[in-house]
Amino acid sequence: MLLQIIINGILKGGLYALMALGMSLIWGVMDIINIAHGAFIMLGAYCSYWFFSLLGVDPFISLFLSIFILFVIGYGIQRYLINLVIRATIFITLILAFGIEIFINNLALVMWTADVRKIQVPYGASNFSIGNFVTIPYVRLGAFLIALIIACVFYFILNKTRLGRSIRATSQDLDAARLVGVDVAKTYALTFGLGVGAAGAAGTLWAILFPINPMMGGILTLKSFVVVIIGGLGTMFGPIVGGLTLGVAEALGSNWFGTTYENFISFTILVLVLIFLPRGILGKSE
């Protein structure tokens, strides 16, 4: 029983990790806390939902479409909006992101109504058992693996490609990066695009597992914060450690205190980690 709870927590934690991956990248590179992150997750979820219900595209395939669409949206928003205020004080970008969130959420509400929807894949209920104790649904395992794969792709892009080098250079020293010929505005836009693309992927996976509605983003943004903070900023594997930690902590906490305390547990962990371990579990010291 306890093992099953922990495994459920780990599987959900993989999804949390993917959600936080994009937020951590954007935060680490540009010092923007993307409050609209959850709204982008919601857009990713709806992308796959419409591909599935209108064209019958399997969500594990429309995953790539939703990454691409969200990448383009993210690129545009950073290039033509956030770049305009990026050097102002920190809460300016914070509130701008809030404005974007309000805008996207309500646009979705007007276009798609507040109805709760879900992608009902035919294989949604099938699962396998290990021994007689643990049951693992295929979709949850698939979502978990895809989250890990995308994290690895991110690691590859950041460490092995030219784009990754310019992103890292820009985050270390903006002026020096500009001096050696990095197009900062474009690099920022690409970074935001990548982060939002990852949010799109998380949205698709979320829509396979859980019901979706236009206002689902808020709590997911907050959970992404918690994951980023627990894992620590500035490392690629921070979000994975943070995601798994939060997933397991929530699963255990809801089991002991009841599910209504789930959010209380998350945010108490957030505040405690911030106070006692401000760099997170894996965070680098400055």
């Binding site: 914060f225 903070i229 305390y261 209380f264 945010f267 957030l270 505040v271 911030l274 106070i275 401000p278």
Partner: peptide
């Protein structure tokens, strides 16, 4: 919480508010 700076203070206060909401709930 006031020992934290910048974004970290912002997030911590947000966390406190959400935790209180969940508690009062």
């Amino acid at each position: 919480v006031l020992r934290l700076k910048g974004h970290y203070f912002a997030i911590a206060t947000l966390g406190v508010a959400e935790a209180m909401k969940a508690l009062v709930d």
